[in-house]
């Protein structure tokens, strides 16, 4: 067993983990972050995507020990003061989810994508989400939601955008580099 200290959604945890424990299993089974899910065993589906020190990662392809000393943001850590992150809100507004199983990973990846490219076109959104599979939506409304969020997060777009910049300052939005 190895002792690690990880900050998850703003709370610091110190735990003993097996060296082989994947970050996703640590998050789900030891930290209780069941909002992050496991959809495959080959890193194809992206359902387990979280942010590790501000970058999106598939948490099934990271060992928990690799997150030692890092900050992790999951889908459960996005909302602030009861307000949804603009990408969460956009997924709701644009019916970008059906069963919702891929949604946590899809939202985390979309935030990362918008950090790299704040104003993507449809093709850029599709390529940015290529590593996240959805079986329900055909992706059309996901693309629409991400572009909707981009518009609302752009400079001067109002309170929603401020929310993101405040997260970027605290290093948990994953949008910034």
């Amino acid at each position: 067993m190895t002792r690690i200290t990880v900050t998850v959604d703003g709370v610091k945890y110190t735990d003993e983990v097996e060296p082989r424990t994947l970050l996703v299993h640590y998050l789900r089974e030891q930290v209780g972050k069941t909002g992050t899910v496991v959809g495959c065993d080959t890193s194809n589906c992206g359902a387990c995507t979280v942010h590790l020190d501000g970058q999106s990662v598939k948490s099934c392809s990271v060992f928990a020990v690799q997150a030692d000393g890092s900050e992790v943001t999951t889908i459960e850590g996005l909302a602030r003061d009861g307000r949804l992150h603009p990408v969460q809100q956009a997924f709701h507004d644009n019916h970008a989810l059906q069963c919702g199983f891929c949604t946590p990973g899809m939202i985390m990846q979309a935030i990362d994508l918008l950090g790299d490219n704040p104003n993507p076109d449809d093709e850029q959104v599709r390529h940015g989400l290529e590593g996240n599979l959805c079986r329900c939506t055909g992706y059309q409304n996901i693309v629409k939601a991400v572009r909707d969020a981009a518009g609302k997060m752009s400079p001067g777009a109002g309170p929603a955008a401020e929310q993101v910049s405040s997260q970027a300052r605290s290093g948990v939005s994953g949008g910034g580099q």
């Binding site: 972050k33 909002g35 889908i75 459960e76 909302a79 997924f91 507004d93 919702g100």
Partner: peptide, 19 residues
């Protein structure tokens, strides 16, 4: 109508059997 179901699904408050 935007879906009632979404609130928990977009925030990770889900009740999958494996949870």
């Amino acid at each position: 109508r935007k879906r009632k179901e979404d609130a928990r699904l977009i925030s990770g408050r889900t009740r999958w059997t494996d949870n």
